[in-house]
């Protein structure tokens, strides 16, 4: 295929990409009356899985029940789930066009692959916990709520940067 390049293209100017993302967000507000998100889709997946494995257990949990709905529609037939499938496709396509899609492991030079996987898993767990506590992630809270000047979203965003900067020094060997 001619559009697959051998060497990776440079990334776009972050401000230009930011304006693109902002317009996507604006268009979503206009059409849907809601913003974008990511973690909600993962919660739908978890709730559905829990419901398949042990329906009684999942139905008894108020948190999962919120994502399972009344049972007439599959929780996976959800706006955010479709959006995140789109994110996967969009990321893949952009990576292909720029010659950046390849099997790889992103890590600092100082740590082994196993270590990187362990940290990626633990980091994911901690992050998911924070996301659910705060009712949204960088997409659902920071971007969406940020644009709506939502007080809670800005509090979340400031705390997010504070938490990451405070922790960064301790885990610098992971990345540098």
């Amino acid at each position: 295929m001619p559009f697959i390049r051998k060497t990776a293209e440079p990334y776009w100017n972050p401000y230009i990409s930011g304006i693109g993302l902002g317009l996507v967000l604006l268009f979503t507000f206009l059409v849907m009356g809601r913003g974008i998100g990511a973690s909600g889709a993962m919660t739908s997946v978890v709730a559905t899985t829990a419901n398949v494995i042990s329906p009684q257990h999942a139905q008894a949990n108020e948190f999962f029940r919120g994502y399972l709905g009344d049972g007439t529609v599959s929780p996976l037939k959800d706006w955010l789930v479709f959006e995140v499938i789109g994110v996967l496709i969009g990321g893949f396509l952009s990576g292909i066009f720029a010659g950046r899609t390849s099997i790889k492991i992103e890590k600092g030079t100082g740590i082994s692959t196993n270590r990187r996987f362990q940290y990626a898993f633990i980091g994911g767990m901690i992050m998911a916990f924070g996301t659910k506590l705060a009712r949204g992630c960088t997409s659902g809270q920071a971007l969406t709520g940020g644009a709506l000047m939502n007080v809670g979203s800005w509090l979340f965003m400031i705390s997010l940067f504070a938490g990451a900067y405070a922790m960064a020094w301790f885990v610098r060997r992971l990345w540098i």
Partner: peptide, 8 residues
């Protein structure tokens, strides 16, 4: 709406 749950 059943398909569009608001929020994350």
């Amino acid at each position: 709406s059943k398909l569009v749950r608001m929020g994350c």
